[in-house]
Simulated scan of single mutants.
Amino acid sequence: MHALQALQAIVMRELFKFSRQTGRLVSALVRPLLWLAVFAAGFRNVFGVAIVEPYDTYIPYDVYIVPGLVGMVLLFNGMQSSLAMVYDREMGLMRLLLTAPLPRPWLLFSKLCATALLSVLQALAFVIVAALIGTELPLLSLAGLNALLALVCGALMLGALGLLLSVYVKQLENFAGTMNFVIFPMYFLSTALYPLWKLQESGAEWVYQLARFNPFTHAVEWVRFALYGKDPGAAPYVVLGCLVLFFVVACWGYDPQRGFGGLTKRGGGAG
C-alpha cells in the first residue's frame, strides 16, 4: 500500500505540474505540427509512399510521417524527463525521494510511469490535431487500440532511456550535448521520415544499417503497423527488450553501492 501511494503521488505530482505548464504542451505540439503542416505538405504529392507493408494502397507523405512525428513527441518528452530528473536529483523532489524507505527501482519505476503517461497524453493530443487538419488515420478501430499499446510501450522505452541518460548527465548545461548526440541521431537515423527500403534503394547502406538497429525505428514501426492491423514483426520484442535493458541499467546506475558515471560521488546516491 505504501508503494502504491508513492506511485500515485509521483504520477499525480507530474500531472499537476504539467497542468500548470501550458507552454510545455504547446511547445510539444508545435514542433511536430510544423513538420506536418510545412514539411509534409511540401512533399505531399511529390514523395508518395509506394504500396508496401503496412499499406494496401499508395498513401500521401503526411499519412506516412504521422507515426514518426508521434515518435518525435515521445522522444523529446523522454529526453526532457532526463533533464527534469537531473534537476530533481540535484535540488528537487527526487533528491528526497531517493532517500525514502522504498526500493529505489520502485521509485524510478514510478517516475518512469509518470513520464510515459505525459508522453502518451501529448502524443494523443498531436494525433487529434493532425486528424483535425485533414490527415487520414485509421484511429476509430480495433487497430487503434493496438496502436495505443504500441504507443505506451514506446513511451516507456524512451522514458527508460531518459532515466539512463540522467545517470550520466550530471549538470543541466550538458543537456545540449544530449540533444546533439542522442535525440537527433535517433530521430533522423530511423524510419520516422522515410522508409527503410528508400534508404537502401538510394545506396545509403550505412544509414540503412544504423536505422535497422535503432530502437527508435522499431518503436515507430510498431505504431505504424499496429495502426493498420498488420504484423509488426520483431518490433515489439526490440522495444520491450530495450525497455527492460534501459531500466535495469538505470537502476544499477542509481544504486549507491554499485553506481557508475560518478553519480555516487556527487551526492546523487546519498541514502
Rank of each mutant, 00 (worst) to 15 (best):
F246T: 00
M179H: 10
A176W: 02
R104G: 04
Y228H: 15
L33P: 11
L75Y: 00
P103D: 15
S119D: 03
A226Y: 03
L149T: 12
F260C: 11
R89F: 07
S27T: 15
G23A: 09
N146Y: 13
P32I: 01
F126Y: 13
L69G: 07
L240G: 02
S110R: 05
L161C: 05
G68P: 03
C251T: 07
N45R: 12
S19Q: 14
Q5I: 13
A160E: 05
L245M: 13
S190I: 05
A131H: 11
L137H: 02
L74A: 03
F260A: 11
V86D: 00
S119K: 01
A226N: 03
I65Y: 02
L193E: 07
V46C: 03
E205H: 08
A176K: 09
E136D: 15
V46H: 14
Q171R: 15
G162F: 00
T115Q: 11
G268I: 10
A28T: 07
A234E: 12
A50R: 12
E90N: 12
Y237L: 14
G78H: 02
F213W: 15
F184H: 06
M1Q: 12
A84V: 04
Y87L: 15
L118F: 07
N45A: 13
R266Q: 10
F181C: 04
D231I: 07
R24H: 09
N180T: 08
G71S: 07
K230T: 12
S27D: 09
V26F: 15
V249I: 14
S110C: 12
L124G: 03
G42E: 01
G203V: 05
G233T: 11
F175R: 02
E201Y: 11
P32T: 01
Y194T: 14
L98F: 14
S190H: 06
K198P: 00
L142W: 13
G162I: 00
A125H: 06
A40I: 01
G159S: 01
F213Q: 05
